[in-house]
């Protein structure tokens, strides 16, 4: 980020990755990382582990609020659309019903509420997960491939204000980590 323009690629520490052998180990280690006060870190496991949210000290997901916002937007947009089209701009009697009437609006309101909620849920999830993203230095590790198979990982990123590679390493080693590695990323000109 702060790098001046140079021809030679410069590297810097991106994160520290620790590998654990069991779900129990990783959950205990996560609790230790949480208690050490880190913010920019994550766990990577082949399957969801019950109790991990608590061990990581994660707050409730904010997706719910985004969905609520999406729902209310869809409801309001649908109502405004029908009010303008059927009620003001071009009132048409269909099936002997008043042009702008509640019951016939309900299915449209319902569908638009669901549609906007789904958009909010999917794109909100992408946004909160900082996706899509082309690359992450964690994939520099060959060991990390088994995160989708039978190994458990915790990574602490260098951008964490408390980050100190040596302290992180000793924290992991004290938490029964099988293997700890420091991963670097290129600082581009």
């Amino acid at each position: 980020m702060s790098a001046a323009s140079k021809t030679e690629p410069k590297k810097r520490v991106a994160l520290v990755l620790a590998q654990f052998e069991t779900a129990a180990d990783v959950i205990h280690a996560a609790a230790k990382v949480r208690d050490a006060g880190y913010n920019c870190w994550d766990t990577h496991t082949p399957f969801p582990i019950h109790g991990m949210d608590k061990a990581m000290g994660l707050p409730d997901s904010r997706v719910g609020w985004l969905v609520l916002g999406g729902a209310l937007t869809g409801l309001t947009a649908g109502f405004a659309m029908m009010w303008w089209m059927n009620g003001v701009d071009y009132p048409t009697v269909v099936g002997g019903k008043p042009p702008f009437t509640t019951p016939s609006m309900v299915p449209v309101l319902f569908e638009l509420t669901v549609l906007f909620s789904s958009f909010a849920a999917v794109f909100g999830m992408f946004g909160l997960n900082k996706l899509p993203r082309h690359h992450h230095p964690i994939f520099e590790s060959d060991r990390f491939r088994s995160a989708t198979d039978d190994k458990f990982f915790i990574s602490i990123e260098a951008e964490d204000p408390k980050f100190n590679a040596d302290k992180v390493r000793s924290l992991f080693e004290g938490a029964n980590a099988k293997h700890v590695e420091v991963l670097e990323e290129e600082v581009e000109a």
Partner: peptide, 12 residues
């Protein structure tokens, strides 16, 4: 419940 009401209301 609304489906029942809606169809009855619409068909009249």
């Amino acid at each position: 419940s609304f489906s029942q009401f809606f169809l009855i209301w619409y068909a009249n």
